[in-house]
Amino acid sequence: MRLGSIERIWRYPIKSMGGERLESADVDERGLMGDRLYAVRDAEGRFGSGKNTRRFRKMPGLLRLSSRYPEAERLAEPELLDPDGVPVADAAAYLRHYLRRHDVEVAREGAVSHFDQLPLSVLSTATLDWMRTALAGIPVDERRFRPNLLIRTPPGTPTFVEDQWLGSEVRIGTTVRVTFVRSSERCLMVNESQQGLPHSPLVLKTIARTHAMRLDALGTVTAPGTIDVGDPVVVIRP
């Protein structure tokens, strides 16, 4: 059964920042290669995020920044872009001034994972279109929900169709296989402002009211390969 096709691919080189839109991506057991491979780390070893936990430290404003990998240097330390999309010369110096913290740096993932949950997040256009309708007047696109893949689903596909995908294994393109395990529990990050998207507390309130704080399908990669925009997503094991 065909679920749809890849509409857009997103990779986030530095955790909790805006990402880069790709036409093609290599995928391994960790997810999209280079996704959230770097993070802003403080002196206690905690990673910059939208919340405080044992691993993460809340650092407001990170989402207004973005990052990308230099085209000529595959998975080299990513470029940091300011809120206007302009690359900064010294990422650590910029972040220390921007965050008003003197103990932060951009660090590559080590023994502690940068992922909040599972490595691959997938969102359907059916769910995204519903969110746009429910939040009429508030700019909404998939960047609020930070998926790796936006899947174009057929007309008439129900909202929150991702729930029906959980437990199934799909093939994306010709080689990549993903098993959907659970959905993400959303936090205040979906409300935060970023380029072209203003702050709005109604985003999380809507998800909480209609779908128990959950939105997307999270998966593990069971077979690696390369994916491209337009690739079909087909169920191979319900």
Rank of each mutant, 00 (worst) to 15 (best):
E109G: 10
R152Y: 02
E29K: 13
N191W: 03
T226I: 13
L63R: 09
L202I: 00
A92R: 12
P83E: 11
R74V: 11
A39H: 04
E71A: 12
R132I: 01
I14M: 04
T226N: 06
L65W: 05
I6T: 01
T206E: 04
L118W: 04
K205E: 02
S67L: 08
T226F: 01
G173Y: 07
D90M: 12
R100C: 14
A43I: 14
R8K: 14
K51W: 13
A89Y: 07
R152N: 05
R100Q: 15
A107E: 15
T133K: 12
V178D: 00
Q117S: 15
P139R: 09
L80C: 11
Y12G: 00
R21N: 09
F180D: 00
L202E: 04
S5V: 04
A39Y: 02
P158T: 10
L63T: 12
G34W: 01
A126I: 08
V86K: 15
R152L: 05
A208G: 10
R186S: 03
H114S: 08
G34T: 03
A92E: 11
V229R: 07
T179M: 07
M1G: 15
R46N: 06
A208Q: 11
I151L: 15
W165E: 10
A217I: 00
A43W: 12
R36Y: 07
L95I: 07
T220I: 13
G4M: 05
D129W: 05
Q164H: 11
P70K: 03
D28C: 01
T210D: 09
R108D: 04
E192L: 07
D82N: 15
L188F: 14
A43E: 13
A92T: 11
L118I: 04
A89F: 04
S16C: 13
H97I: 14
L65A: 10
R177S: 02
G156N: 08
T222Q: 06
P78C: 10
V234N: 03
Y38T: 09
V234K: 02
Y98C: 15
L22T: 01
E169H: 03
L81P: 04
L22W: 03
G173T: 05
L81S: 04
E192V: 02
L204W: 00
G110L: 09
G34V: 02
V181N: 09
S124D: 05
V181Q: 12
K205C: 00
D35E: 10
I236F: 03
H102F: 12
I6S: 01
S200D: 01
N148M: 09
V86C: 12
G137R: 00
V140S: 00
I9K: 01
A76Y: 11
R74C: 07
V203C: 00
E142V: 06
S200V: 00
P238K: 13
S200G: 01
P119E: 03
E20W: 02
R96Q: 13
R21I: 09
P224V: 08
N148G: 06
P139D: 12
P198F: 03
L197I: 08
T53E: 11
A223P: 05
A136D: 03
V221F: 06
Y94E: 07
M33Q: 09
I14Y: 02
A91F: 11
E71Q: 10
L202M: 08
P13Y: 06
P201S: 10
D90E: 15
K205Y: 01
F145T: 06
R21M: 13
V106T: 04
I6Q: 00
V88H: 09
L63H: 05
A76D: 09
P155S: 14
Y98M: 14
V234Y: 01
D216I: 08
Y69R: 14
L99Y: 14
T179D: 06
A89R: 14
